[in-house]
Write a protein that binds this DNA or RNA. Sequence first.
RNA 1: GCGGGCGUGGCGGAAUGGUAGACGCGCAGGAUUUAGGAUCCUGUGGGCUAAGCCCGUGGAGGUUCGAGUCCUCUCGCCCGCACCA
Length: 818
Amino acid sequence: MAETYDPQSFEQPWAERWERDGVFRVPDDPGDKPKRFVMEMFPYPSGDLHMGHVENYSIADAMARYWRMKGNAVMHPMGYDAFGLPAENAAIKRGVHPREWTLSNIAKMRSSFMRLGYSYDWEREVISCLPDYYRWNQWIFLQMYKRGLAYRKTSPVNWCPVDKTVLAKEQLSTGVCWRCGSVPEVRDLTQWFLKITDYSDRLLDDMEGLQWSDSILTQQRNWIGRSYGAEVVFKLKREGNDEVIDFPVFTTRPDTLWGATFFVLAAEHPAAAEMVAGTEMEEPFKEFVDGVRRQSEIDRLGAKGASQGMRLPAVAINPVNGEKISVWAADYVLMGYGTGAIMAVPAHDQRDFEFARRNDIPIRVVVQPEDGPPLDEATMTQAAPGTGILVDSGPFTGTRVDPQTQEGITDVIAWLDEQGKGKRQVNYRQRDWLVSRQRYWGTPIPIIYCETCGEVPVPDEDLPVLLPSQADYTSTEEAVSPLANNPDFVNVACPQCGAPGRRETDTLDTFFDSSWYFLRYCDPKNESMAFDPAKVAAWNPVDNYFGGVEHAVMHLIYARFFIKFFQDMGLVNFSEPFLSLFNQGHVSWAGREMSKSTGHVIEAGAVVDAFGADAARTFILFSSPPAADYDFPEDGYGEIGRVAHSWLSRVWRILQEVSDEPVPDALNRQVHRLVKAITQDFEEFGLNTAIAKMMELVNHFSKLDGPVPREAAETFLRLLAPIAPFVSEELWHRYGNESSIHQEQWPSYDEKLAKQEQVTMVVQVNGKVRDRIEVSAEVSKEQMQDLALSSERVQAHLNGGEPKKVIAVPPKLVNIVL
RNA sequence: GCGGGCGUGGCGGAAUGGUAGACGCGCAGGAUUUAGGAUCCUGUGGGCUAAGCCCGUGGAGGUUCGAGUCCUCUCGCCCGCACCA
């Protein structure tokens, strides 16, 4: 008689009907309702959805649905980060064009998204590899170019010999290519950069108001790496040469200048090579530098050795005391930071200390600690970088210095400035963003090179510069874009003078695409602008952004940079794109990350086929807290059937028929209590515990004698709707409701009913539970104490002794202290 | 090394400083059944001289009437950064 739970029979029809009826569509203007922009990091279309995707999107979708039912206008769009390397690799492997491979994956993913019942407004879909999107990448690039934020320079780059592309510093995880894991080579190339360093301070300072995890904020702070100090000018003099050159160094400890006993250049510094040029040291030095280059790659892979150095035939003159100190080249000084040279103060810097000891360089203490025995150069075993009093430091002898508070240090900087020996300086680790890629499947950079006019931006009316459809996606020549082999693309008239010119053949880093896609969601079909500022202002900034921690630095910092740039252009009226960020846990299988390429993957489609979309969603949300990782057992996803499908079957059976009887008082109280608790869980993203409480409610239903009263059943279905949208909609309609449950209000509760009437009072003696007594929730302290002391069990433990103290916490606990 | 996070049953995991183990998986026993990997009920942290008591949240201290939760130290695991002067 009772129909069995068969999700396949109703899930797909509902998905189609929601789309047809536009249930999740939102207007360009949220109107009277409070707006909420809920967004997941858009996926790379690598194939089809797997259970890792289901985790992230189910969390966000449940929350979007909850907020929608709470009365918000919810913008919840979806798109595809569709340019990038895997498309080319797959295309080469299968002989299919990257565009076809990508678009067919998008079609698969879109249909999986729909099957899973995610509440996206599909009319806002954004696909970054289509010209109607990437033409605006080109426009944005040109806006940056016109403001001097996009520029070209020749620089050594990390070149991946396998993927045949340049890697941004951020893309070198543990010193190897983030995609293929091979060791990059260093090459000189002329490339396009974006001046993100102009925004370093704002990127740091604006982090204050963001509701992001400390871990990500810290990673971004470290990435930008702002440090305060001074630039101090040393003079360098080569042996056998009277010429003296100024050589500035950056230091955070100018207060220790009097303790500088040597000077170090980065091994690769051209000035070092110059010093030895033409001397008998030239050859050994070259060997040394080559060794350092090789060594530094091993370093990056984790095996760090003691730093290597070589003394150079020169002296440096310390500007504060005129002292002549030795000059070295060493691997522990980085070419890319500061000026590529340092003053070394071995007594107060650990790296300098170790280098000095190894090379018998003098050590001089200039900061004595305020407590404990004074430091002695001869017996020190490590540097003393902390607070203390300056000694042997000229006019500053006796000054207290503290690197934490900058006490004393600012005075030294002021003095250096007065003396013309140095000045205040702030240094950053962050470098400009290298956006050129020698790849086919990306946005063509809209620049034309002309013999007479030089770099010429493509005029706006000529945009987009279309990515030509061509057969070769990899260049035969290394470090040259495949587009260079396409004469039809390359050869073009100069837009300024009409003479024959050449197009730029590099494409943009795909992180460019993902830096502003959320703005395009608000105006996805605009053909005359990247976005209408008014439409963007109506929904932005994004209120809730969901995505993995792996984007802690790159994507999140680039998108923040773009927004600040748009703010400066007057196109947006906010400074931060993502107000709060939720990092979901990762889903693995048998302890290993799921990966399409190795086939080690639990496909969402297989799970939906076996158990239905509701079960897939419910399982993944119930099995671990949203922020925690989840590992599927070796034997696969069978547990989804035992856990989620069977529970939904139970829901189906129990709620198959409802009665029009009023809700019995006891059940009513449970309903109100659980609505309150579940609402609180949703507010805190506690979806696993929210589902646990829904299970409790179903357990209460199952204990009823007859069918569940309709009012209680409908309340439950509305609680379930964000988690399992199909079965809740199906049952909702079976009760005779006409409109979608997903347009209903979230259930409210009555505080009074949510409170329990009777509670279990625990009686402890010396903190140990000795009795439990049922009491009214309104019980007074005195009543509790009387009840507790008159309990037989408690009496037995009192042993006739007098309680020293009785603590009563109404209505739940009494503790009797003897 | 530095920064962030985490250690709770056989498993996933619950616990505003107040009954440790909610909810579920698994397991055990039972009921029912046109026998199925269905459904329903009961039990399920460990131990003991077992209607009771003792021990239990990686370990050692501390604060408190009371600690998984707060503090100090320590061990282990995961993630990020890694010579940034």
